[in-house]
């Protein structure tokens, strides 16, 4: 098992994600499994690193949301194959072991940004409890308590639904002040996130990728140290 071959497969996974080539990602993922390479390494330094470049391309306005979605599909094509074979010991030493509750708030049926963030949490090794969209506000609180998740991530695409997030932040922080709360969506700004008492925010699907990429990039650095 040469280092050269490992690098070759990581490059295939990376480029397959960036060029939203699902077949290429699937072929490389199968090769990783067949040839017995480290699966967690393939996820983090192949798939996730590819998505990191996608985030940069979005930032540079070379990619837009359609491309992000297609890249996400390519990433999932690989992740679906690889994830069941990740050695828990790898995740245990370098990756995240957290749980996150995620959903679009009541009154909002948009979920593109939410789904991209969900994907990045999954890549990073989190257990994700996806409540879907148009989620009644109390449901976030119930699910956080039930799962004892460390993070609650909420999305609202419109100003008209954003106010619901404030109520959820209040309800959750009242019961458990240590829960980290992430807000996302077009109307969400840093000011609003801090006014609502949240711990982080991303204003669009692209920014969501950037935020999540930063999180995963930190994990990759740890892994590579």
């Amino acid at each position: 098992m040469s280092e050269e071959r490992v690098q070759e497969l990581l490059k295939e996974l990376h480029e397959g994600v960036v060029e939203y080539d699902e077949e290429r990602v699937v072929a490389a993922s199968k090769a990783v499994l067949d040839e017995g390479h480290n699966v967690y390494n393939a996820v983090m330094n192949g798939l996730a690193s590819g998505m990191e470049e996608v985030g940069e391309l979005y930032d540079q306005q070379e990619y837009f949301v359609p491309e992000l979605l297609m890249c996400a599909d390519a990433l999932y094509a690989g992740l679906d194959l690889l994830k069941p074979h990740i050695d828990p010991a790898d995740v245990g030493t370098t990756g995240a072991k957290g749980q996150v509750v995620i959903g679009s708030v009541q009154g909002d049926v948009h979920d593109i940004g939410k789904n991209i963030i969900k994907m990045m949490f999954e890549v990073a090794g989190f257990t994700v409890y996806d409540l879907g969209r148009d989620v009644p506000l109390e449901k976030f609180v119930e699910e956080q308590l039930k799962t004892d998740s460390e993070i609650v991530a909420m999305s609202a695409m419109m100003t008209t639904t954003m106010m619901g997030m404030k109520k959820v932040v209040e309800m959750i922080k009242e019961k458990n002040p240590n829960v980290k709360i992430m807000l996302g969506g077009a109307p969400v700004t840093g000011d609003i996130a801090s006014l609502f008492g949240a711990d982080g925010y991303a204003e669009s699907a692209g920014n969501a990728v950037q935020e999540a990429v930063r999180m995963v990039a930190q994990l990759r650095k740890l892994q590579n140290q």
């Binding site: 009541q106 009154g107 909002d108 049926v109 008209t160 106010m163």
Partner: peptide
């Protein structure tokens, strides 16, 4: 959202 307190605009389910 007739049973929800506050303001919510209708959505397509």
């Amino acid at each position: 959202y007739t049973d929800v307190e506050g303001i919510l605009y209708p959505t397509v389910p």
